[in-house]
């Protein structure tokens, strides 16, 4: 009997989700009002997206989260792998998640939307949280998830700490070296991406934006060579071999690194819009200071 309760309690929420077409903020506002009234914060939360995993773990109470995506346990991708290690991993399949009897599922718009749709049809509350492409969206996302988990106060504290940390780190000085974010297949992230924002906050100008790609795009190796960046930040190395990543070992990239600020490799701090991006910004600033630029 008690096992059926969370499902029943979740139904009105799922109804409101479908009307609002998955607009996370509307749900959050509804939850913010409804949660104190019902005094029923969800107790079996499942997250199926690497970034919502980390945001949820940052604001949830002990034991509130049942499962996170398997990627959250991979230290190469997740800044909170140690915390995720004690939770059940999921691969975003509707069946396995339904069997976990969640009273709230949190996901991103692009991680297996068909599974999210099926869970909604089965009467599970699903909260879709958009990914972050600007640093100032991180407190918003924390607030959305905090409200959904009934942890608004914790979320506000984490967000305030983040804003204070960011304020202390952002470099708006006049000296701005030019850096390129270079990844597999020659993809270069521009200013209007999270990685570009991290680069900007650390006091760098972005070669991709200079080349007319503020949203990022494929930057041919030739154009990278001619732009002579002051630093190259490469994407994190994935396990195993791939031709896509071979470009990062190209002699041209090696030649560009000579005389430049020693580049950094993008690690798990870069992947998601969480307060952990402060680690990435601090790391880049450290690289500048070491090189005296």
């Amino acid at each position: 009997m008690s096992g059926a309760m969370p499902g029943r309690a979740a139904r009105p929420l799922s109804g409101s989700m479908s009307r609002s077409e998955g607009i996370a903020l509307a749900v959050a506002a509804w939850l913010a009002i409804a949660a104190p009234l019902a005094a029923e914060a969800p107790q079996r939360v499942v997250s199926m997206n690497l970034c919502t995993d980390q945001l949820a773990m940052l604001v949830a109470a002990e034991g509130q989260i049942v499962s996170v995506s398997y990627l959250a346990q991979d230290p190469g991708a997740s800044a909170m792998a140690a915390q995720a290690a004690g939770l059940l991993p999921n691969r975003g399949r509707a069946e396995e998640i339904f069997l976990m009897r969640p009273d709230l599922v949190i996901t991103g718009p692009y991680s297996n939307p068909t599974a999210a749709d099926m869970l909604r049809r089965l009467g599970v509350a699903v909260l879709v949280v958009d990914p972050v492409s600007r640093l100032d969206e991180i407190p918003d996302r924390l607030a959305v998830i905090g409200a959904a988990l009934g942890q608004a106060d914790r979320a506000a504290k984490v967000a305030a700490d983040f804003e204070a940390g960011l304020g202390a780190l952002v470099d708006t000085g006049p000296e701005r070296p030019r850096a390129a974010l270079y990844g597999a297949n020659g993809y270069s992230a521009g200013d209007r991406t999270l990685a570009g924002q991290i680069l900007w906050a650390a006091g760098f100008d972005n070669i991709a934006t200079e080349q007319g790609m503020p949203d990022g795009g494929i930057l041919p190796l030739e154009l990278l060579a001619l732009s002579q960046p002051d630093m190259i930040v490469t994407s994190r190395a994935e396990p195993g071999a791939s031709r896509s990543e071979e470009i990062l070992d190209h002699p041209v990239v090696a030649a560009l690194r000579d005389g430049a600020i020693p580049g950094r490799m993008r690690d798990s701090d870069w992947v998601c819009g969480t307060p952990h991006v402060l680690g990435a910004i601090a790391d880049l600033r450290g690289a500048r200071e070491e090189a005296g630029r």
């Binding site: 597999a184 297949n185 994935e238 195993g240 071999a241 791939s242 031709r243 896509s244 990543e245």
Partner: peptide, 13 residues
């Protein structure tokens, strides 16, 4: 089967 997320996309190459 490769653990590398880029590998499957390289079938076309």
């Amino acid at each position: 089967l490769s653990p590398n997320p880029w590998a499957a996309g390289e079938i076309v190459f």
